[in-house]
Design a protein around this nucleic acid. Structure first.
Lengths: 162, 162
DNA sequence: CCGATAATGTTCAATAATGAACAATAAAGT
DNA sequence: ACTTTATTGTTCATTATTGAACATTATCGG
């Protein structure tokens, strides 16, 4: 309709909408944080996806590959590719469940726990550094906004499946 | 210093820190938005990276591959892989600059402009839908926080280079 | 003007992530 | 009990992204 009509309201382009601009900033910050974290983790010879796995094993001992994949929002096949690497490095263990012979239960080895703590320290330091100057109340608003977005997107996903 | 000191404040784990939790929410929302956008763009046969390129050509006619890569926070080689695809589809044009024979200046073809508008409409709708219920003032706080983070991370990047 | 240095784009090998197809096992319906 | 359906994990082909090495062209210092 009013596509090139830039008379009074000058919101003809997406990047003029506050919500759009806001989200673009979120996406850029995320991308940049990911890259920075990748470099910061290089000395430990792991990458962000590995850290995500390790942290979840740290928190949820005995988790399943399926559950892990769901938490990380990735496909099961991805776990089938990454977990054997970590296992060969002696960071994690995969043991078959007795009751359900399909599932493999995951846990950290002692050296895996150590590495995870080191990596979490790096990540925490990076986040702290990046969010210096951001008041806690702003952080809470950000968290709330993101949780709401996550809820909406997950709901939409389930709708589409059915 | 006080790393394992869990006396009164119970902030022993990263995920107990408000800033950490806040950032994790940001990362998850981003990942989810990316996946949702990927599906929403499927009918147009493009993916988020292509859309990022198209939008920037829409905004900045005659931009260089180098400049584009910098804006998108990706490597030059990535542009060398993606742009020929879009060119073959007749969505963009690459013309050599007369003054500087190294650079290729990028622009959208008419069909590229049409596709870009359609894709931007999809993206805008998705963002609007995801941010319904988020007050504009919260959006502004989010945007501010993210801009600050971007600034800090970019500064750190430049430091590391030198 | 000319050699050194920098910038632009391309190519290539390596790595990651995905979805589809598959095998093994469990659960449900009859 | 047994057939059907679902779930879990793996494999494979495909695509995306990266960084390093390279060729070409600009720029700078002498």
């Amino acid at each position: 309709m009013n596509k090139n009509q830039v008379t009074s309201a000058s919101t003809a382009f997406p990047w003029d909408h506050p919500r759009f601009r806001s989200w673009i900033a979120v996406a850029r910050a995320c991308q940049l944080m990911q890259q920075t974290l990748t470099r910061a983790l290089a000395p430990l010879d792991i990458k962000p996806p590995h850290l995500d796995i390790l942290v979840n094993l740290y928190r949820f001992e005995g988790i399943t590959q399926q559950e892990l994949a769901r938490k990380l929002l990735v496909g099961r096949s991805n776990m089938s590719m990454l977990l054997p690497q970590l296992e060969k490095r002696g960071l994690i263990e995969r043991r078959g469940d007795r009751k359900d012979k399909r599932v493999l239960r995951l846990s950290l080895t002692p050296s895996g726990q150590t590495l995870t703590q080191e990596a979490m320290a790096i990540q925490t330091a990076l986040i702290e550094k990046s969010l210096t100057g951001a008041p806690i109340e702003d952080c809470l608003i950000v968290a709330e906004s993101m949780e709401r977005i996550i809820g909406i997107l997950l709901a939409g996903e389930n709708d589409a499946e059915e």
